[in-house]
Design a protein around this nucleic acid. Sequence first.
DNA 1: CGTATTTGACCCTA
DNA 2: TAGGGTCAAATACG
Length: 326
Amino acid sequence: ERGEDMDGCDGEKRALAAQLAQVLAMVRELESRMDQDLPAAARELCGELASSVDRSIRIARSVDGCPRGDGSQHPGGSNAQSKRRQVQPPIFCFIVDTLIEQQNHVSDMRLLALRSFRCSRKGTPCARRQDMAPLDDGLSWRKYGQKDILGAKYPRSAAHVTAAHVTPSLPSCYLHQTALAGCLATKHVQRADGDPLLYDVVYHGAHICAQAAHPAAEQLSRQLQPGGLADAGQEQSSPLEPENEGLQAGLEPMTPYSFAPATGAAAGGFPLLSPTGLEWQLSSHTVGGVGVGIEHEPQFAEFFTNSADPFQWEYQDDYLNLYATN
DNA sequence: CGTATTTGACCCTA
DNA sequence: TAGGGTCAAATACG
């Protein structure tokens, strides 16, 4: 029913993206012609302009599933670029949806490897409206701390999920946790050096209190749990056992793909996170490449980089990046 | 006045 | 011991 609107909207977005792409090309042309003697500030400005336009293009293409273009540029980009992560919920939701659709193509070994990724079990709640707002991921967060990071231009903020939507009587998930041994999800947000418009966003821990989850995440959670919820709850849903971590979890005969009880008030889970119980790092890259970065154990890299599936896995630095390729 | 944010202190880990 | 994460009292805000 929204097809008509979408078509017109898509047309405008494509036009916008095309225009921006032209501007970007011109900027890069200008940059390439720049004499080395030009002031560094001018070249820096040029780089920032190119970066800004590039972001605009990605935003234009990401809204409501607009095509991403030819993907000619490698998603990983340079090292510098790969370190810069930006939250783009539409793109991420697209990837989650695609993952849901294509999850059968992900081998059991991969899922096992995924499960063995570190799942930190920290916990508390928060969010800062000003900083978190542009990073809206469908959850409400409450900021609980901010730290200056050595060598980083901007401080890092930490936030907890709030449970306001579900339990209005409880002001936040922090209280929920203290009282009910509940949610452990945290989110760290940090502006990227050199580009205040880019954010590094890292989610930690599983969100198991009953805040409304993204439908895609719920669906994924159901699909990744072929029954076995009864015993899945014990270790996985016991957030107060911080020693259960990392590879250890992968080696134990635990119920595959489980992460949290999906019954009663605890149904749902942490959007973009709980379905696999992993740490996800939302990311965006240059034109043609979007995806999620996953903190992982290096020894599992081969599971992700050796086989073909609907996703493009890239093992780079300390992250395994997953890109949707269709 | 209730809730959210700030910020210095404390704690943990490498 | 330094760096980073979290706590919690103080403060701001609606």
